[in-house]
Nucleic acid binder design. Structure first.
Lengths: 205, 205
DNA sequence: CGCTATACAGCACGATCGTGCTGTTTAGGG
DNA sequence: CCCTAAACAGCACGATCGTGCTGTATAGCG
């Protein structure tokens, strides 16, 4: 077919990647197959392959989109809250919402990709690791702000708060994806709230 | 080759499954391939396939072995402790040990299988779901015993304790497999201990 | 010492994988 | 209005997948 405008190419690529993310969330990033994705999009294998240099590039692009969608669903709505405990609470709330009604049919994409590629080598592993490290650092910075403001106990380790919140989210995602019981979301929410409980006697005010 | 004694067949099968579990912990239960496993064992594809009815049976057998190994590494050493909080603490301790030095190169097999098959249908999905449900019920029963004995706050929900402990273990496993930082194990241990903290004023004595 | 059942190798099958190459079609610049 | 460049279909390639069938060698029973 023809040469098309850059905008059209971009939206085509975006729609392609959106379908790729949906598919990969169910069958995994490795099960994300050129043939299957092409069939689902109603185009030929070579046509689809032409949009990406290789399967690995497709995996990386799908991962990027999934990270963007996670940030748009979880972080950005919470970023309107003031930094610190309030923002962390908003993040956790949105996070559990995201686990309960994920944008993808197969649950949190980052978690799936992390478990799938944690024991492999290559660009995809590195990209997953980088994305999750960055997210943990965001959480840690918020926790540090909260501690500095006296919104969390002064002996709180921000890195530990970030770790525990992430672990609870990952664990909640796994449980919910396996059993689809809303109680898992309640448990996850309550456990996160307990982590972010204010100090009994406020230190600075 | 020949007809062999039942004992020999059993140990051969056990060795085969042990290799299958190792391989699957890295490449996933779906990436566990007859050809790759046969090559690793130095035998032909058809020879290996003859030991199992189908690939799905191989996956189920590998899963069974992984569950047995998890129980042997985590639950059974802790079962010598008295039921309730002491046993839960021992379980958590062993659990984190298991995450830090898993019997398989790719981390906790159950977690990997759970994430891999949570969005699929079939016997493997059902088996994973059943195994994890049973484990959660074990944790919940121990937590209920602890609450009844006054070793945990009386308003504690045993199901929530079981859920949170499992979520922390899963999250710790994911983080550790991705980054291989011992600090993750410390964080996981501390968070689990916090969940099992004794009531400030013991109710029954 | 034969006989038989079994564990396995070897091979072939269709399907699907990722990736190239070759046309063909067409939108947009000159 | 051409003409170039991009997007894609169609096809083929070797590799690998799971699964059968066939032949063969041998341990253990009678």
């Amino acid at each position: 077919m023809p040469r098309r405008s850059a905008a059209q190419v971009d939206t085509d690529r975006a729609l392609t990647l959106r379908a790729a993310v949906d598919l990969a969330s169910v069958v995994g990033l490795e099960g994300l197959t050129i043939g299957r994705l092409a069939e689902q999009l109603g185009m030929s294998k070579s046509g689809l392959a032409g949009r990406f240099d290789s399967k690995e590039q497709l995996q990386l692009a799908a991962l990027d989109l999934a990270v963007d969608m996670f940030r748009a669903a979880v972080y950005e709505p919470a970023a309107v809250e003031p930094a610190g405990r309030a923002r962390l609470l908003a993040i956790c709330d949105r996070w559990i919402d995201y686990v309960g009604e994920p944008a993808f049919p197969g649950g949190c994409f980052l978690t799936t990709a992390s478990v799938e590629f944690d024991a492999r080598r290559g660009a995809v592993h590195d990209a997953v690791k980088l994305a999750l490290s960055r997210w943990l650092r965001v959480l840690e910075a918020e926790a540090a702000t909260a501690v500095a403001a006296g919104e969390l106990p002064s002996d709180t380790d921000p890195a530990e708060v970030a770790f525990v919140l992430n672990a609870l989210a990952v664990g909640t995602n796994c449980d919910y994806q396996l059993h689809h019981k809303a109680r898992a979301l309640d448990h996850g929410r309550r456990a996160m709230a307990a982590v972010l409980r204010q100090p009994a006697t406020s230190i600075r005010g």
